[in-house]
Simulated assay, not measured.
Amino acid sequence: MYFVYILECVDGTYYTGITNKLRNRIRRHQQGKGAKYTRGRLPVILRYIEICSGKSEALKREYQIKKMKRGEKEYLIKMFDKERMKNSVYPKEL
């Protein structure tokens, strides 16, 4: 199982990535050992998660999200927050 995720950086920008170990990856971002993009924009906040069945699917979805305009990413995040609150699909700490 892979995850596509969106982080919000301290400067308000978004970073999109994939991983198969979400908690570890987010921790590495927070430690400044994640992507070069996020190192100078700490702290980061996890704003969106999407579960994918495999790496190929996650890479395709990451590419789609990276091509989205900011408003489209904000809409994804908004819908994710609504769904998470409604169904408790993901633990609040994620």
Rank of each mutant, 00 (worst) to 15 (best):
C9S: 07
V10M: 04
D11L: 14
D11G: 06
D11Y: 12
G12K: 15
T13C: 04
Y15G: 00
Y15C: 00
T16F: 11
T16L: 09
G17V: 12
G17H: 05
T19F: 13
T19I: 12
N24I: 12
N24L: 14
R25H: 11
R25D: 01
I26L: 12
I26T: 04
I26Y: 06
R27S: 13
R28T: 02
H29L: 07
H29S: 03
Q30I: 06
Q30T: 06
Q30F: 12
Q31N: 12
Q31V: 04
G32I: 01
K33D: 03
K33F: 13
A35C: 11
A35Y: 11
Y37S: 05
T38H: 09
T38A: 08
R41E: 01
R41V: 08
R41P: 04
R41C: 05
R41T: 02
R41D: 02
V44Y: 00
V44N: 00
I45T: 12
L46D: 01
R47A: 03
R47V: 10
Y48C: 00
Y48E: 00
I49A: 02
I49F: 12
C52D: 01
C52V: 05
C52G: 01
C52A: 06
G54Q: 09
G54Y: 10
K55R: 11
K55E: 00
K55L: 01
S56R: 13
E57C: 09
E57M: 09
E57Q: 13
L59A: 11
K60Y: 09
R61S: 04
R61I: 14
E62N: 03
Y63L: 08
Y63P: 00
Q64Y: 12
K67S: 10
K67Q: 12
M68E: 04
M68I: 14
M68T: 10
M68C: 07
K69R: 13
K69N: 06
K69W: 08
R70V: 15
R70G: 02
E72T: 06
E72Q: 15
K73C: 14
K73R: 15
E74D: 05
Y75M: 10
L76Y: 04
I77M: 04
I77E: 02
I77N: 02
K78F: 15
K78I: 05
D81C: 10
D81S: 09
D81W: 14
D81F: 15
K82L: 15
K82R: 10
R84G: 01
M85A: 09
K86E: 06
K86H: 10
N87Q: 05
N87C: 04
N87Y: 15
S88H: 15
S88N: 15
S88V: 07
V89P: 00
V89I: 13
Y90L: 02
K92N: 03
E93I: 11
